[in-house]
């Protein structure tokens, strides 16, 4: 039986209203997240992946506005709730986010205990001792010792700070955690440790993750399903095996992105890359948005908007070449 869906997004649209025009950063995005799974979101910078993350918290960065769609979290549309309700019941309670460069989210003048307690007090009425106990539990869960509570951020290494932020995201027991590039600023060894931690938490706590990164090789190691974004839309969405398996991904963009990802144990003469640059989202190209950079385009790609269709169970693609017609 299919696992319960904790999050369902339908036709989500978020536009930035800038002086130069309307940037369609997230354009009719639909996907879902099952309980206890990790959904990876990949794409080049500017493809709208971080924007999508903030939209899921109903927290668009000005001049951005969510202009349409539904975000069903546990069956409830959070876009219909008032800001007050979202703040009280949704944000951090059911859906939390670990931001890009999260280690810089910590206030340098507060101890870890004080910053963590602040989050807790906003949401729960709790005795100080009980709160402290809870903080300790969560710090231990992410592999830190109790005495971290007394420390200031500058006394911790980058990896430790990242663990504190993850603990803070966890300790109101949300159902979904969005991680936006949680490892980019970290060294490889620390990155591997954080990845291991997230895998471990998924198993122990049963929380679902949305893991945003530009690096396909990290997604291969953490995500059960992968969503590939291009120019504000979904290019391809499939299971780990469908994307990284021997048959390879279906969309030419994913194929090229994977081709540009270096592999450590392979001797290559020439690394592949994707010529051209991602399109301007104020005036995106007609038809398929990838067509100006696509090596295998058909005539209709430049004219007809391409829908996202399921080509096999759990595998959705937006490419005219992949549909048998």
């Amino acid at each position: 039986m299919e696992k319960e869906r904790v999050l369902e997004v339908q036709d989500l649209e978020l536009h930035y209203f800038t002086r130069k025009g309307v940037v369609k950063a997230v354009d009719k995005l639909s996907f879902f997240l099952r309980k206890g799974e990790t959904l990876g979101v990949v794409g080049e910078s500017g493809c709208g992946k971080t924007t999508m993350g903030t939209a899921l918290l109903n927290m668009p960065t000005p001049p951005g506005r969510i202009i349409g769609g539904r975000i069903l979290l546990d069956g409830q549309d959070i876009l219909k709730l008032s800001e007050n309700e979202v703040r009280r019941r949704v944000r951090w309670e059911t859906i939390a986010m670990v931001f890009q460069g999260a280690m810089n989210c910590l206030t340098p003048v507060y101890t870890i205990e004080k910053q963590m307690r602040e989050t807790l007090q906003q949401h729960r009425t709790m005795e100080k001792a009980e709160a402290k106990e809870r903080m300790k539990n969560y710090l231990n869960l992410v592999g830190l010792s109790d005495d971290v509570l007394r420390r200031y951020p500058h006394e911790l290494s980058g990896g430790m700070k990242q663990r504190v932020v993850i603990a803070t995201a966890l300790f109101l027991e949300p159902k979904v955690i969005i991680c936006d590039e949680p490892t980019t600023a970290l060294d490889v060894v620390v990155q591997a440790q954080i990845i291991n931690l997230l895998k471990d938490l998924k198993e122990q706590v049963g929380v679902s993750f949305i893991f945003i990164t530009h690096d396909l090789s990290i997604e291969a190691e953490v995500s059960d399903r992968i969503l590939v974004m291009y120019a504000g839309r979904i290019a391809e969405m499939g299971t780990n095996a469908q994307i990284y398996g021997p048959q390879g991904p279906a969309h030419p963009y994913t194929q090229r992105l994977l081709g540009a990802t270096p592999r450590l144990h392979e001797e290559v003469e020439e690394l592949a890359f994707i010529p051209g640059t991602p399109p301007d989202l104020i005036a995106p190209p007609e038809g398929c948005r990838f067509h100006p950079r696509c090596p295998v385009l058909l005539e209709r790609c430049a004219q007809d908007d391409v829908p996202l269709r399921e080509i096999e169970p759990d595998h959705m693609v937006a490419c005219w070449r992949c549909f048998d017609e």
Binding site: I195, S217, E219, G245, R263, L264
Partner: peptide, 13 residues
């Protein structure tokens, strides 16, 4: 260092 590098292959999740 080498063990820590992620590789884009399936079956490691």
């Amino acid at each position: 260092l080498i063990g820590a590098v992620c590789e884009p292959v399936s079956g490691k999740v």
